[in-house]
Simulated assay, not measured.
Amino acid sequence: MPEKTFRCFPEDAALFRQVIKAWPELDATVRGLQAQGMFPGLRAVQITLQGDEKTLAKGLAALLPENPPSGPESAAPGPDAQGRGV
């Protein structure tokens, strides 16, 4: 299966932030590492995608929900993978 790796650079940092926030498990991991002082920042992040060429052509946008929630309810943190509040 083809794959492509994306590293975070200043010009795409906003997109990396969106991807991290769109995935509750990843967001929780990053926040946990930040709280421990073990996360050096987005410059250390790289994401490898695997999939067909059409998916890989979308780049990191392939990881974002197609219909993201909007409104006040989307600003509240949701449950993590174990169903606990974040």
Rank of each mutant, 00 (worst) to 15 (best):
L49Q: 05
A75I: 14
A61G: 05
E53H: 02
L56A: 07
W23G: 04
V30L: 03
G37A: 08
K58W: 05
P72A: 15
A22D: 07
L33D: 08
V19P: 00
F39G: 00
E53L: 12
Q46C: 13
L63W: 11
E66K: 09
D27N: 14
E73M: 11
E73G: 08
L63H: 06
I20S: 05
L42C: 01
T29G: 09
P40F: 13
G71M: 10
S70T: 15
Q36E: 15
V30I: 14
A57T: 14
L63K: 02
L33A: 13
Q50L: 06
S74D: 13
G37K: 10
P65N: 01
L33R: 09
T48N: 01
K58I: 02
S74N: 06
Q36D: 12
L56W: 07
A76F: 09
Q34Y: 03
A22I: 05
M38W: 11
Q46L: 11
E53P: 05
R31H: 08
G41A: 10
K21N: 04
T48Y: 08
P69W: 13
P69Y: 14
Q36H: 14
T29M: 11
A22F: 01
L33S: 07
G51M: 04
W23I: 06
L26H: 03
F16G: 00
G41I: 01
T48F: 09
T55K: 13
K21Q: 11
L56Q: 03
A62S: 09
R17C: 12
I47G: 01
A61Q: 12
K21R: 11
E53A: 08
I47P: 00
A62I: 03
P24S: 09
Q50R: 14
L49F: 07
G71T: 14
K58A: 10
G41R: 10
S74W: 10
E73D: 13
P65Q: 03
R43H: 15
E53M: 07
M38H: 09
A61W: 01
E66Q: 11
A44G: 01
P69L: 09
R17F: 07
Q34D: 07
